[in-house]
Every structure is written in structure tokens, then in C-alpha cells.
Design a protein around this nucleic acid. Structure first.
Lengths: 360, 360
DNA sequence: TATCTTGTTGGAAGCGCTTCCAAAGTTTTC
DNA sequence: GAAAACTTTGGAAGCGCTTCCAACAAGATA
């Protein structure tokens, strides 16, 4: 069916190896020959057979992305970054959407064997210990995004610092009774965001009160979903009645915050007048809801994650790197600070790449 | 590195071909031999090398999905369906996110050559004529989702009918002055949804007035975005002042409707008391916004689209099929009909698969 | 001029699998 | 009991490429 390098070789009057070398920019061909071969390739609109290349070269030029519930807006935006970078480098992206842990393992196995991919990007989940050794033995690169494992390259947002910024901001606006809506503490982000919240309170010598922290981890995504936010906000408002008045909430994710705003609206509680709200993530929706939030540079995280993975293939034995991002507060209206729309604040990547996890 | 079928053959004491046949469920092996070989394969935890298989069998077991702006919620939900079905059939999914037409062509070319994929799913865009012949010559299956081309399998939602349902519903609630917020009329859905809106008015003998149709096709996604909805709603409300009072709007997509609701809120216009709203799509958010809308069965569309593509690979010469879906009205609160939350109305797939485009 | 480099080139081997063909084994038929 | 028919098997060929090695050409060196 297609044109092969044999055709090119015949047509250009050169040998088989020479054609391959021309096509792959191998140094040891004369400029003249290269030109001739490339011209012929162009004329016949030759396209290499991907699988043959991959079989012979033992490189897949493909990475897999293992992503939980990929309707979650955070992943989508990170994935867009990954996709853009992959396109730039000529990589293909295999998408493995995961609905439960056993599925994740299936896809890990699928990625591990069969030379299908050169590396795996593993998102936001605890990397299963039972696979650690296997990946190391196979020397198959892994980048863990939004989670951490000491044996692999990881990429994290400084949740603790982000949560501190958010809480400090509320404190700065004069709030003292600040609640938090969180998700399941089994997840790293929830834990870290809680600790940042605490820390900021402590700094300001406001006593921490677990009564003001509401966690609804119903159903999917460990509680990082709109319904959970909705329920939690109702609970916060309920608890807030009377003496224990809560005038502000820090919410662990924007999706939850969207639900929370809805709840407030339904109960006739005004935001920010009656209760100020700060979220976390800066998903696309946040801007429209005028939600003050902590921005994670999602697109950028995606591009860098792919780059890390590719770098790792070239340098498999270096020790694992941790790349951290410092998120940035984006002030809009739900906090009551009234920023109409903060200047296009882009989170800056902090500190570059470190060898060991930072204090987070 | 890995275990090959040679290892299996040696270990099981059978020939090379026999191993391959066992692994592929070829009928002509005795049950005994098959069992023996499979046992060995399991013991050595053999995994076939994907690229070798693909090279030898000339099947990629992979499809590519070419999707515009894949942060759009509609695509994400369809994609989830595709992904689920792909997992079930053991297919890999290559994701090609597109930001402009030339990129789409690049990915089409990439899909076309090199045996990379067995087929292409092309989403929501006009399939470029310059590629029609190429795909036909290569006999590479294409399924066009949410758009249409006579030469390929296509999958469409009956936008016209959906829009009629939405508009009729508003009429049924007593509204006479019904506006519409639409996106660029260069797109098929916008055109069809407008025509359904018109038709329903006509049925009820309400004169159609172009003054009541607002189109903001600023920027991306041909106007199917939140900002456009926001602006359009402001415009609708502006135009609505005085004699020309508009008491209801049909909005061409949920993302726009989300923006529109925001605009209404900001201007102090109550929904549904002052203005009733019906959207289109039923994205995840719609439920939470209590948006009455027209449900597209997105997940199901995805699974069926993949199935169509796979079927087509087995039967390349049959004439192109058109599969249409009848969307279904989901009544929530923004229309004022007060459905607390309609029973989990699932859109039903209508009429199955037809050979020629229906009247749409 | 003879020898050594260096730069280029052709093509065999091999990546791990599928598939085809011929051969061997088994059962059926007359 | 021999021929015919079917079942099962082994292994060569080939998928389209990369890579290695040997070979050759052309300068450089003495």
C-alpha cells in the first residue's frame, strides 16, 4: 500500500541504509546524498510506518497518561498542556481514563509491557507500590503529576503555601471566624491545604477549631466535586448560626466552591457580604464566577510534565526529581476585596527543580 | 528484555506458529495444546509486543480522536464514552487536540499514513474536502461526530428537533416573547437550532423576529462559550426594555447559558421569574445550575461512535451510515416549570442507523 | 608513491510478531 | 485395510524499519 524505504532507495539510486540515515538526520551522509533522498521522499510523499520504526528502534514515541475521572476540569487543563507539548515533540498521547484503582493497575500493566509507550504520566493518584519495582526494572520512566513518590519524578503544587496565601488573604480582610470546606483527608492535597489553613490561622494567633472545617467526601473524586461543595456549604451555614458566626470560608477546590456558591445563593446568603469565599485551582469557570482563588498553572504543569518525561528517557539513571510550583492568589470578587479582575496573574514556577522534596 | 513467543514455544515444547495461534484464539489448535501454551504464557507473564503485532498484522488497534479545543465540556463527556468503549475492546486512543484548522489537517495527515491508527474520529468540524479522497483511497475509516459528510459515517444530534422541543416548552408555559441566544451561524448546530426555534414559533403562530435573536460569536468555539453567553444575555436584557419585553430565552448551548445566568444575576434580573431560560446539551454543570436544557446523550454517543468505527474497519465498502440521536428535554428550574429535578431522563437513541441523512 | 585516516555507503541481520504452506497425524469412508 | 478427508502442527517468509559492520572512496600524511 504505502511507499517504503525500498522504493525510496531504488528511486534515489542509493542503498537502504543510506535512506534511513538521511531520514533520521544521521551525521554520516554527504549533504548531496541527503538532499537527493529527501527530494525523492518528498516527491513520493513518503511517510514512515510508525510501527515498523517503533519495532526496529525500540522507541514508541508515545506516552500514556493515566488520569482519574478525566471530566475533572483540573486534569483537562493540565492535559491540554501535555498535548500541546507532545504535538511539538512529535509524540503521540495515549489517554487512559480511570474510574477505579484496579483500572489504574490495568493501564499501568498495559503501559509497562509490550513496548507500547516510552513513559507514563500518572496523575493525582497514589502510585501503587506493587508497580514500583516493575517500572524500575523495566527502566520505564514515570512522571507523577499532582502526587508524589520518592522513586519517581514528581510534580507538585505547594498546596500548603497556596492554602496559607488564601487564608492569610481572608485574615488580611479582617476575618477572624474563617471556616474551611475540604475533601477527603486521605488525599494529599486535602491534607496539605488543611495544614496551610491551620498554619495561617496560627500565624495570626487565631485558634484553630475543627468545628469550622467541613468535609463531605461523598462519592467520587474524594469529595472534590460540586455536590460535596454544595452540601458542605449548607452545613457551614447551618453551623454558623448564632454565636459561632463564620464570615469567610476557604474551600479546597474551585469545583467545590462552585457548588458552595450555589448553596449560598439558594439559602439567601450573600457572597461576599455575608460570607467571603476563596477557592483553589483557578479552573476556567472560576473566572466567570468571579471566584477569588489560588491559581495552579495547569497548562504549564502539563508541558513541563511531558518535558520531564522525555528528559528522563534520555537519562534514566539520574535520581528522581521533584518539581514544585508555587501557586498564586488571584483576587476576584467572592472574597470581598473587590478586585474587578486581577491582572492576568500567572503563577510563577518556583525554585525550578529540586532533588529532594521541599518542606511541603 | 521481554518474553517473546520464542520463549513460550521453547518452554511449552511447541512450534512458533502454534503459540501465536493459541494467543490469538485461532480455531485450529487442540484444546489441550491451547491450554498448555496459555498456562506457560501466564506463568512467564508474557505480554505481546504491541508494535511487532501491529507491524505483522497490519492492524494498529488504535484510533485517533481529532477534537477541537478539548476543554469544551461537550467533547469531554463524549470522549469519556469513547474511552470506555475503547478500553472494553482493547483499543488505544490517541488524543489530538486541535486549536486551528491547519492543526486538524496535520493530525489527519498523521493519522492517514504510517499505519498508526485503524481509524479516525473527527469531531464537530467540517471535514476538509482535500482529505476526502485520500482517506477513501487508503480505505481508512472515518467517523464524523457532531458534524456531517456524505462520504463518511456520521453521527448527529437532531438539533432542529431539540430546539423545537425547547421552544415549544417555553410556549407551553405561556411565553410569547421568546428570544434566542445563538452562536455563529457558520456552524451546523447553530443553524439547525435556529431553524428549530423558528419552526416552533411558526407552529404556534408567533411571528419570528430577528431582533430577538442575539449572536455573539466573539473569539473561540464559534461563540459557544461562556463569555459570549454573558454578553448576549446583557444584550437581550437591554433590548427587552419597554414594549419589546422578552420573557424567555432559548440558548443554543449550556456553556452560553451558564454565562447568561451570570449576566442576569448581575443585572438583578431573576430567573425564571423575570426571564425563563432553556439551554442545550446538558453538560454536567447544567444539573447543578438547575438549568432546563435539551439533553444530548454524550457518553452514549461516544461509545456508539467508537463502535461504528470498529464496525467500519470490518466492512469498509458498505455505504456511509448516518446515525442520529433525538435529544430530550430535561426540565429543571430555569424555565419556571419548577421540576425539582426531572427523573433521570436519559435521551433515547432514535431510529437507529439510517442510510441517508434524515430531514434534519 | 605507499600508507593511514576519515568520510561515506550498501546491505545483512534482526526487532517480535502473523500468516501461509506443507507435512504429519487422526478420523472417516467405502 | 487403503484411500480420502479433515485436524493439527512446525516453521519459513515477511511486515518496514534501524543499526551494525565491512567495504570502498578520497584526502591527508610521510
Amino acid at each position: 500500500m504505502g511507499i517504503t524505504i525500498y522504493d525510496l532507495a531504488r528511486e534515489a539510486g542509493v542503498g537502504l541504509g543510506t535512506v534511513s540515515r538521511c531520514l533520521n538526520n544521521h551525521p554520516s551522509v554527504s549533504a548531496k546524498t541527503r538532499e537527493k533522498v529527501l527530494a525523492v521522499a518528498k516527491r513520493l510523499s513518503y511517510q514512515p510506518h510508525a510501527h515498523a520504526q517503533r519495532l526496529a528502534s525500540r522507541k514508541a514515541n508515545t506516552v500514556s497518561t493515566i488520569i482519574p475521572f478525566f471530566t475533572n476540569y483540573f486534569f483537562i487543563e493540565v492535559l491540554q498542556g501535555v498535548q500541546d507539548k507532545a504535538a511539538e515533540l512529535g509524540f503521540d498521547l495515549i489517554l487512559y481514563g480511570v474510574n477505579n484503582p484496579s483500572q489504574a493497575e490495568y493501564y499501568l500493566r498495559r503501559s509497562l509491557h509490550g513496548g507500547r509507550v516510552d513513559g507514563v504520566m500518572f496523575f493525582s493518584m497514589q502510585f501503587p507500590e506493587s508497580f514500583v519495582l516493575k517500572f524500575q526494572q523495566m527502566k520505564l520512566p514515570v512522571v507523577i503529576v499532582d502526587s508524589y513518590h520518592e522513586k519517581f519524578d514528581s510534580m507538585l503544587v505547594k498546596n500548603h503555601e497556596g492554602a496559607m496565601q488564601a487564608t492569610r488573604h481572608l485574615i488580611g480582610l479582617g476575618h477572624r471566624n474563617i471556616g474551611m470546606i475540604n475533601a477527603s483527608l486521605d488525599t494529599r492535597p486535602a491534607k496539605e491545604r488543611l495544614s496551610g489553613y491551620k498554619k495561617a490561622l496560627e500565624e495570626a494567633q487565631i485558634p484553630f477549631d475543627m468545628e469550622r472545617v467541613v468535609i463531605t467526601s461523598n462519592g467520587k473524586q474524594d469529595g472534590f466535586n460540586r455536590e460535596a461543595g454544595y452540601e458542605s456549604m449548607k452545613e457551614i451555614i447551618r453551623r454558623s448560626i448564632g454565636h459561632n458566626h463564620i464570615s469567610a470560608v476557604f474551600i479546597a477546590s474551585d469545583v467545590q466552591a462552585i457548588g458552595a456558591l450555589q448553596a449560598a445563593r439558594e439559602l439567601g446568603v450573600r457572597v461576599p457580604e455575608d460570607i467571603a469565599v476563596v477557592g483553589f485551582d483557578d479552573i476556567e469557570l472560576a473566572q466567570h464566577a468571579q471566584l477569588t482563588t489560588v491559581r495552579q498553572p495547569m497548562h504549564e504543569m502539563g508541558t513541563i510534565a511531558l518535558q520531564m518525561l522525555v528528559d528522563r528517557t534520555k537519562n534514566p539513571d539520574a535520581s528522581p526529581k521533584l518539581s514544585t510550583f508555587l501557586p498564586e492568589l488571584v483576587i476576584r470578587q467572592t472574597c470581598g476585596a473587590g478586585g474587578k479582575e486581577s491582572s492576568s496573574a500567572l503563577a510563577s514556577r518556583d525554585g525550578g527543580i529540586e532533588l529532594e522534596p521541599s518542606a511541603t
